[in-house]
Amino acid sequence: KNAAQIVDEALNQGITLFVADNRLQYETSRDNIPEELLNEWKYYRQDLIDFLQQLD
Rank of each mutant, 00 (worst) to 15 (best):
A3I: 10
P34C: 04
F51H: 07
D50C: 08
L52G: 00
L55E: 10
E36H: 11
G14V: 02
D56P: 12
N32K: 12
N2L: 13
R45S: 12
E27C: 15
Y44W: 07
Q13G: 05
R30D: 06
D21H: 08
I49L: 08
I6T: 02
Q46R: 09
G14Q: 05
I6S: 01
P34Y: 03
N39H: 09
Q54T: 11
L37W: 08
Y44I: 03
D56N: 14
D47L: 13
K42G: 08
D50R: 13
D47E: 15
N22C: 13
Y26D: 00
L52S: 01
E27R: 15
T16K: 15
A10R: 01
I49M: 09
Q53Y: 09
A20R: 15
I49Y: 06
L24E: 01
D47I: 15
E9Y: 08
Q46A: 11
E27W: 15
Q53K: 13
P34A: 06
N32I: 12
Q46D: 10
A3K: 01
L48A: 01
D56K: 12
Q13N: 10
S29C: 13
E27H: 15
E40R: 06
F18P: 02
S29F: 10
D31L: 11
R23A: 13
D56Q: 14
A4K: 14
K42W: 14
Q25L: 13
N22H: 08
Q53E: 10
F18N: 03
R23T: 15
L52V: 03
L11G: 05
I33A: 03
D50K: 12
K42S: 14
N22W: 05
A20M: 12
L24I: 07
L24M: 03
E9H: 07
L55M: 12
L37R: 03
R23V: 14
R30Y: 06
L11K: 14
A10C: 04
I15L: 03
D31S: 10
V7L: 07
V19A: 06
I6W: 02
L48Y: 01
Q53H: 09
Q25N: 07
W41S: 00
P34H: 04
I33Q: 01
E40K: 08
D56A: 13
Y43M: 14
S29D: 13
W41R: 00
N2D: 10
Y43S: 09
A3F: 04
N32Y: 14
Y26S: 03
F18Y: 13
I33C: 02
L38K: 07
K42A: 15
Y44Q: 03
N32Q: 12
D21T: 04
E9C: 05
A4I: 05
D56L: 12
E27A: 15
Y26W: 15
R30T: 07
Q54C: 10
R45K: 11
D47S: 12
L11H: 10
N32M: 12
A3R: 02
K42H: 14
L11P: 01
L11Y: 11
N22Y: 07
Q53A: 10
S29G: 08
A20E: 13
R45T: 11
E9V: 04
N22G: 15
T16P: 02
E36M: 08
D50I: 11
F51W: 10
Q46H: 09
K1R: 07
E36L: 07
L37M: 12
I6G: 01
V19T: 05
L38Q: 06
Q54F: 09
R30P: 03
N12P: 01
R23F: 09
T28P: 12
F51K: 01
N12G: 11
K42R: 14
D56S: 14
D47W: 06
P34K: 04
E35C: 08
Q25S: 09
L48Q: 00
W41Q: 00
T16N: 08
L24G: 01
D56T: 13
Q46I: 09
L55K: 14
T16Y: 15
N2P: 11
T16M: 11
S29P: 06
Q25F: 15
Q13D: 05
V19R: 01
R23G: 10
N12I: 12
Q5S: 07
E9N: 06
A20P: 02
A10Y: 03
L52H: 01
W41C: 02
I49F: 06
I49R: 03
N32A: 11
E35G: 07
I33Y: 02
D31E: 12
N22R: 06
V7K: 02
D8Q: 15
K1H: 04
E36S: 12
Y43W: 11
Q13Y: 14
A10K: 00
A3D: 01
I49H: 03
F18R: 06
Y26H: 05
G14C: 08
L17M: 05
Y26A: 05
Q25K: 10
I15E: 01
G14Y: 04
Q5Y: 05
I33R: 00
D31Q: 11
Y44S: 04
Q13E: 09
E9W: 07
G14A: 04
K1C: 04
I33T: 03
D47Q: 14
D31N: 11
G14W: 05
L52Q: 00
L11N: 09
Q53M: 14
E9M: 05
N32P: 13
L38I: 12
I49G: 00
N39S: 11
Q54N: 09
F18T: 08
I15G: 00
N32G: 08
R45Q: 14
N39C: 08
L37F: 07
F18E: 03
T28I: 04
N12A: 15
L55T: 11
A20G: 07
D50T: 11
S29W: 10
D31F: 09
D50N: 13
D50S: 11
F51G: 00
L48P: 00
Y44F: 07
Y26P: 01
N22D: 11
G14R: 04
G14K: 05
Q46C: 08
N22S: 09
E40M: 09
D31M: 09
R45F: 08
T16I: 15
N39V: 10
N12M: 14
K1M: 15
R45P: 00
E40C: 06
D47K: 11
K42Y: 13
R30Q: 08
N12V: 13
A10H: 02
L48T: 00
D8Y: 15
G14S: 04
F51E: 02
Q5M: 09
A4T: 05
I6N: 01
E27D: 10
V7H: 04
D47V: 14
L48H: 00
Y26K: 01
W41K: 00
Q46T: 08
E9A: 06
F51L: 05
L17K: 00
E35P: 11
E40I: 10
N22M: 08
D8P: 01
A20V: 15
E9T: 05
L17S: 02
D47Y: 08
I6Q: 02
Q46E: 09
R45M: 15
E40N: 05
N39Y: 11
F51Q: 02
Y43N: 10
D21S: 06
F51D: 00
L55W: 10
K42N: 14
A3S: 04
W41E: 00
W41G: 00
I6M: 06
Y43I: 13
E35V: 11
T16A: 07
A10W: 04
P34T: 10
L24Y: 01
I6C: 03
L11F: 12
L11E: 06
F18M: 06
W41V: 04
E9I: 04
D8I: 15
E40F: 06
K42L: 13
Q5R: 11
D56Y: 08
R23K: 14
E35W: 09
G14H: 05
R45W: 13
F18V: 06
K42T: 14
L37Q: 04
R30S: 08
N32W: 13
D56C: 11
E35F: 09
L24K: 00
I15A: 03
G14P: 01
Q13R: 10
F18C: 09
Q5F: 05
F18I: 07
T28H: 06
V7S: 02
A3Y: 03
A4L: 06
E27I: 15
D21E: 08
D21W: 06
S29A: 12
D31I: 11
F18S: 07
P34M: 03
D56F: 08
L17Q: 01
